[in-house]
Design a protein around this nucleic acid. Structure first.
Lengths: 223, 223
DNA sequence: CCTTAAACTGAACCGTAAGTATAGTTCCCG
DNA sequence: CGGGAACTATACTTACGGTTCAGTTTAAGG
């Protein structure tokens, strides 16, 4: 029973997300979505409780996918090093590479998009978005704290703010990327954030001063 | 002749900006704007070439105001120190303080808002937005290069990316602030960026190692 | 004061978009 | 093969949003 249901429902979600990221939620008409999804209005309203319902479903889906992506990258990073700081730095490298490898059409972040269209997004959506931001923060806090266990932190930036800065770098990078039409900016901002983390944990000292595991981890050339 | 004209036109722009930043451009109807501006539809269309024309005027105005703000802060910072790096750090402090002092209603950035509503924004608007981003980048490149003249730069982040990171920090901070309903996040991200700049220019070394002018410049307590 | 252009009013117009209603059709699962 | 879930097709309501325009008011100069 889920086979058929999911195919149409999922198709709608995929297309809706892509159109909305391009034009914005309010500017996207249901008909726009129907055209690209090979489904009729009846079908749409069968699956979703109107446009507000669609918004909820979209954000839910988006957050799940995002979680999965971060989990995968974390796993990959953990396979490549034992050191917590090293793992974090690799994670950021992998993420930067991923953003650089994206197809020409830069995606954008649903949460960011919805942030500036607070109008009819009901309370559900707003809570989901907060939850998403909090989960990203928590993920980074975990990574940073683990790294902090092994190395002393320099600078006077709180771990929470440093964690939020991860989100800020990505969202800021996406904004630059969208306006200039080049994905490169996202990777650059992620790598800049990475450089900051490195410095904070003292990993930018001469090699002689830091543990063996921290030597030049797969360096990423900058543009 | 400009007296009368400007009063209405300006009133429309002010109200339009505030509503648009709250709900988004597309979700903001002309009627919404009229209600708050004490003017009729005819009056609106007398002043602006429809909604697209309003968008152009809004962004133009926004960029000018932004330029002025940055110029003021730069001037203030230059009055407080001779050292280029010191000036930059003060500038960032002033900006962070300003964001923290804002009225409860967090504003948002028109450029960011329009970034995710690329639909009917004509080419003019898009070019203006790019121009704005480029001018912010250039402003920071100037400041960073001047600072770089006096101190050696550490880390492997290009000046351009570091300059863009200023924008990214602010936009990211605004996004967090909007979602959590607390302006604090903007200041925090600006101060985190400041900490990064400090580290890159080696200003986080023990006092004994750096020029006198760099000692604890008006410290801002973090949350 | 009178003219004239700028500034503005008010109402009408038209497309479009969200949502509803309904009757019928196809597909899959037990 | 029966029945419910997953749709199609079509028509319609309702309302709102952008735009136009003919006419009226305001202010400023000669």
């Amino acid at each position: 029973m889920t086979g058929r249901r999911n195919s149409s429902r999922e198709r709608i979600l995929v297309n809706a997300e892509s159109i909305i990221l391009e034009k914005g939620f309010h500017a996207t008409s249901i008909n726009d979505i129907l055209d690209k999804s090979a489904i009729t209005k009846g079908g749409f309203f069968y699956h979703f409780d109107g446009k507000p319902g669609l918004a909820v479903a979209l954000v839910e889906r988006y957050l799940v996918q995002d979680d999965q992506l971060f989990a995968e990258l974390t796993e990959q990073a953990e396979a490549l090093s034992e050191d917590p700081l090293h793992r974090l730095l690799i994670f950021l490298n992998l993420l930067a590479e991923l953003f650089g490898r994206l197809p020409e059409t830069h995606p954008g972040c649903l949460v960011a998009s919805f942030t500036y269209e607070n109008q009819l997004l009901n309370e559900d959506v707003r809570q989901l978005m907060q939850q998403g931001l909090l989960s990203w923060r928590q993920m980074m806090i975990d990574k940073l704290e683990r790294a902090g266990g092994a190395y002393a932190m320099k600078g006077d930036v709180s771990i929470e703010t440093l964690a939020d800065m991860f989100t800020a770098a990505i969202e800021g990078g996406i904004m630059l990327a969208r306006n200039f039409g080049e994905n490169r900016y996202i990777s650059e901002q992620v790598l800049a954030y990475r450089a900051f983390v490195r410095m904070i944990f003292g990993a930018d000292q001469p090699d002689s001063l830091r543990p063996d595991s921290l030597r030049p981890e797969n360096p990423v050339r900058k543009s």
